[in-house]
Amino acid sequence: MAGHGHEEAHDETAGPKVLAVSKVSPKVRTIAVVRPSEHDVTYLEAARKGLGVTLRHFMKNFFGKRRPAEALAKGEAVEPRSRFKPAWNEIETIQYPEEKTHYPERFRGLHRLMQREDGNVRCVACMCCPTVCPANCITIIPAESDDKGVEKKPAVFEIDELRCVVCGLCVEACPCDAIRMDSGVHAKPVENRGDAIMTRELLLGLSADVGKDPQSTATQGGEGPDWRG
């Protein structure tokens, strides 16, 4: 870009041009401020470049042909540019939501809560995930469970998906494999911020919605001997 004129004014290694050094405190220096040249502030050069890009896209979309939808969905690499089949001659636009683009393997998506064999929530409200959450998006209010072997359950389990930074630390922290981030679905667009808060029931039902097994096979309480028999 031609917008920043200082690139030609000095090289990075030399640092700014020093005009004067304070005698009292040598760290205080007067340096030359590099301002953009008159040619730059008119933005003529940038405008010309931008128009060129727009024109190129127009030509491509007008005369080019679409890539096959399957190729887009699979996320196949753009074919190498050749003389007769240049890659730029293919339109990248996809017809969302009928067609969906390829996602990286490590895409997580919304949280989901796992279930026990009896369909109850696996979470024991240990508060490890709200403790570790850097975005403070998890709210748990614990309560006494009817099952004496479980003791503790979440009366309220809410995740504010707008606050969530999708770091996955809650999954790492969970000692019970009760929370996972593998649903692969986006947070839904909402009109009110409150609608983005996923309640316990929504998080529990998400497994069925995305067709994944809602139950975890991990041993509750770790991999020790099954002392409850």
């Binding site: 024991v124 409200a125 240990c126 490890c128 479980v150 003791e151 503790k152 000692p175 019970c176 309480g221 770790g222 020790g224 002392w227």
Partner: peptide, 11 residues
Amino acid sequence: HPIDCPICDKA
């Protein structure tokens, strides 16, 4: 000791 620290209030 059951080592049930996740549900133990003393943790």
